[in-house]
Design a binder for these strands. Structure first.
Lengths: 225, 225
DNA sequence: CGTAACTTTGAGACGTGTCAAATAGCGTGG
DNA sequence: CCACGCTATTTGACACGTCTCAAAGTTACG
């Protein structure tokens, strides 16, 4: 790692910068600016210049696009630590909004580009991130294409719990409408799926957004179906 | 372009190498070996080491994966000129097979990696290819999630015609089963969609695989729905 | 408290999957 | 060149699941 360019992250050696204030691309840590967005605020719009790369510090972010008929599709939910807005194009192909009040780290794209150009390990890390996102997009296509409503919702819950390091219960930051637009279902169908899972004792719903995972095995079995 | 590394493609300046024998990564042209695969032959399997990157010279290739229930999903069809097998991971996350008899160019992945590491323009080109594939995967997820059967098939035909430089008629190299597994439909539903489009005079079907695009406007309108 | 947004529940319509069978197309060998 | 058999495609009838439309119920917040 002799060629590591720390000039890209001058603050890394100081105690002033916390880990969440930094975007890690392989061996390089890039600093940026914090910014706060309130619930439903737009972080960037579809077609806007992609001048920044983003990382969630707190809260939840959704990336989305609109189909020709005007229907909304939520491509992904981004939790704290997740990087988003990494289009590899000059303009964003999708929009981003805060699901809940959220704090986001903004890093200049030019800095990311320069880092990748100067450091081959960072470049490889970027390609790896691209590969991962591609894999996720394909996985999502499979879910939408081949699974039924109950299976989609189960898969969503399992994945959500996994990403939150597998707690026994979780608070969903997003509405049923968000979930529906992510899974290509209607609000009603999502709601019915939740209700059915509660009847089956796979989950409990003390409130609409608070989910207790009562039977993990059943959930995993459902999503596989 | 001072740093362009032509050692990677020593044959580029000779007349012996035809353009289809070369994999172009931005400013660099990489040479490789030709290989012939007959109909339905496996080019590489899911989980195999990703030692090569591929480019279709002639024929058609499908990349695919199997869902947990054993159902096949065709991620994409690759036509002459298309690059595939670019996983950015050490093993292939999907399998590839020849749809029709096909000729394929194989380029060592290590050569691609080295090229990207040495040449920042090539690296950027690779990132661009990754971005494009990601965009396509997302587009496909939208199609599977939100569109009906007729719309999916119309979108498939329009896209296929576009990729073949927009002829008025085309010979589909793939079976109805291939199309069904690509669009997450059944063979029967795909067949009915074709039949219906013929009734609507949007297309004509002299034979099952030969499609005459009779009303392009209607097709484009359908796919948008 | 009152009001607006969100969620749940219900009834019926519509579209796709499933199962079954007929038909067309294609390669092979007589 | 034709007959055969296999595969691919088409068509039909019906079941099932999700969407649509409608309304009641719940929650959050001023």
């Amino acid at each position: 790692m002799r060629d590591l360019d720390y000039t890209a992250s001058p603050h890394l050696h100081t105690l002033a910068v916390k880990p969440e204030d930094v975007l890690t691309i392989g061996p390089v840590a890039l600093s940026g600016a914090r910014m706060r967005f309130e619930r439903n605020a737009e972080i960037f719009g579809q077609g806007e210049a992609a001048d920044y790369v983003y990382r969630v510090i707190s809260g939840t972010v959704r990336t989305m696009r609109f189909s020709s008929e005007g229907r909304r599709q939520i491509i992904a939910f981004h939790l704290p630590g997740d990087v988003f807005g990494l289009d590899f194009a000059s303009t964003h192909g999708f929009a981003a909004e805060a699901v809940s009040d959220a704090e986001v780290l903004l890093v200049r794209r030019s800095l990311v580009d320069k880092t990748a150009a100067d450091n081959s390990a960072a470049m490889r890390a970027l390609l790896g991130m691209a590969a991962e996102q591609m894999h996720e997009a394909q996985e999502h296509a499979v879910i939408l294409g081949f699974k039924g409503a109950a299976e989609r919702v189960a898969a969503f819950l399992v994945r959500m719990a996994d990403r939150l390091r597998g707690p026994r219960e979780l608070d969903l930051p997003m509405s049923r409408a968000d979930i529906a637009d992510h899974l290509a279902l209607t609000i009603e169908t999502v709601s019915r799926a939740f209700t059915q899972m509660e009847r089956d004792h796979a989950i409990a719903l003390p409130s609409a957004r608070h989910v207790v995972l009562r039977d993990w095995r059943a959930l995993e079995h459902m999503q596989a179906a």
